[in-house]
Design a protein around this nucleic acid. Structure first.
Ligand SMILES: [Mn+2]
Ligand SMILES: [Mn+2]
Ligand SMILES: [Zn+2]
Ligand SMILES: [Zn+2]
Lengths: 149, 149
DNA sequence: TGTTAAATAATAATAAATATCATTTAGTAA
DNA sequence: TTACTAAATGATATTTATTATTATTTAACA
């Protein structure tokens, strides 16, 4: 973000730091994580300012909001990519596959009525960390049936 | 949902109607839409009951929660599928492509450390309705530059 | 048909997000 | 530079979304 932009938009320290933080942290931080992170540099920043800027920057197209398990996260990476999402802990990791992007966009071309500009695939499963912590607990009782519907 | 299930789970009218409503409405209803819908039959149902059951049924694996533009939506369709998401109005429509599911799952096999059980691709763009309502407004001023970063 | 754990309705409490407003500041131009 | 002004901030109030509480009701089961 350089001071070369549209009139009516001010490049304050707060705004610049929020965007910088998200560009340096591709782990999809939450509002609180952004707040805590930016506070390292701007100790007196208000949480309302963080909220307002995340909304503002998202509307301006400089950030993207995602939501996993009900928690709102932000990212500044606009290079199309995919996500590995853990159903257990709600973590979200980037995953790149040019192949898959190409394939999806090709399929998108055949969709009518809806003009598609980008695609992203979510891979749902269980992350390494959660898999390991599960091994220790739950010594697997037998005869336990799953829910019928 | 039949009364043939796990002990410790009661099949109340409220719960049954909430699930039935979501199975009959694949348009990914919001909490309020579920509430309004179910109230047609159960006029005295409490909103807290709707919230609790949506949470409960999601935890039991009978519903899935999705979130578009900050609003929480629910669906009961567990047949793997994709979504067309309008960046403008936040609408979300189902889209089926067996091909794409297969392709994604094949790619998933090569991912290590993260155990993937399902995939779903989001197609982002602009829906028919929004495209048409845009045509009338915004007679497109020239010389209007986009934001630099 | 009676018993009881689970669920409900009503409502209170909490958390997340937005609005308000006096003060400060970035951008602009004398 | 300095002065001006619209935009942004910080502090806090307000609103909205979600969860917790509790007296009452009900589904499941003996
Ligand atoms: Mn990402
Ligand atoms: Mn769907
Ligand atoms: Zn995990
Ligand atoms: Zn739309």
């Amino acid at each position: 973000m350089k001071p070369t932009d549209k009139a009516g938009m001010k490049y304050t320290n707060q705004r610049v730091e929020i965007l910088a933080f998200l560009r340096e942290h591709d782990g999809h931080p939450t509002v609180d994580e952004v707040y805590d992170g930016v506070r390292q540099k701007l100790t007196r920043i208000s949480k309302a300012t963080v909220y307002k800027n995340l909304k503002f920057l998202t509307e301006k197209g400089l950030l993207e909001e995602v939501n996993v398990k009900g928690v709102s996260r932000f990212e500044a990476n606009f290079i199309p990519h995919h996500h590995l999402i853990c159903r257990e802990c709600g973590s979200m990791e980037d995953f790149n596959s040019e192949q898959l992007l190409d394939y999806s966009m090709k399929i998108a071309e055949e969709i009518e009525g809806f003009t598609i500009v980008s695609t992203s695939t979510n891979f749902y499963g269980i992350c390494k960390k959660c898999k390991e912590s599960k091994k220790s607990e739950e010594p697997k009782k037998s005869g336990e049936s799953e829910d019928e519907i």
